[in-house]
Amino acid sequence: MFTVHAIDAETLESVRRTGRDASGNAPEPWLAEGGEPVRCCLRDAEPGEQLLLFGFDPKLPPDSPYRELGAVFAHAEPCAGPAATGYPEGWRGRPQVLRAYDARGWIHPSTRTHDGTNPEAELADILAHPEVVRVDSRNIAYGCYMFTVTR
């Protein structure tokens, strides 16, 4: 069994309140065209939704050589968050990179791509490795962070 985590509410509130992202830059207002992956509620945006595009730090241990920042979309105003804690229904069938990490924040060899047809089985297989403490799903084309999975 595993839990899928969206971007945490504290990070989102900070970006909205301070007008600064993980790099200290101002988030870019974005009027959704539809289909943008929204990381606060783990679904694709509907046309016309008000979003923010900003740099996000998925918070690996600070001394990890694999720590990185990347652009993500979130709603400009607070939303209800994900509908469930399982794999996002609207993102099934979407090829992803499942990047596994150990407790040091180092990439684990069980990292792989998947075609989106059975993400639960792929995640269960990766999480079966006792050294793996988290898996980050990332977009294949852009490499952007999508969400985190933990046991």
Rank of each mutant, 00 (worst) to 15 (best):
G48V: 05
L52W: 03
A6F: 02
W30P: 00
D57Q: 10
W30F: 11
Y142G: 11
N118R: 05
P82Y: 08
F54P: 00
G19Y: 13
R39T: 14
R92K: 09
G24P: 11
A76Q: 15
I126G: 08
A141K: 09
G35T: 09
L98Y: 15
S14D: 11
G116C: 10
E13L: 11
T18M: 14
P61F: 09
L127K: 01
A9I: 01
N139C: 14
P82Q: 06
S23E: 15
E68F: 15
V132Q: 10
E120V: 04
G34D: 13
P27G: 09
D57Y: 02
C79R: 09
A71N: 02
R16G: 11
A124V: 02
T11H: 07
E46V: 13
G90I: 01
D102A: 11
F2V: 09
L31E: 14
M1V: 13
G35R: 04
I126Q: 03
D115M: 08
A121M: 06
E120H: 07
V97Y: 14
G35L: 01
I7F: 01
E13Y: 04
E77D: 14
R39F: 03
P58V: 05
H129R: 07
E122R: 03
V15S: 10
A103S: 15
T85G: 05
L52C: 04
F54G: 02
Y87H: 11
L69I: 14
R67C: 04
R20S: 12
P130K: 07
V149A: 08
D136I: 08
E10N: 07
V133D: 06
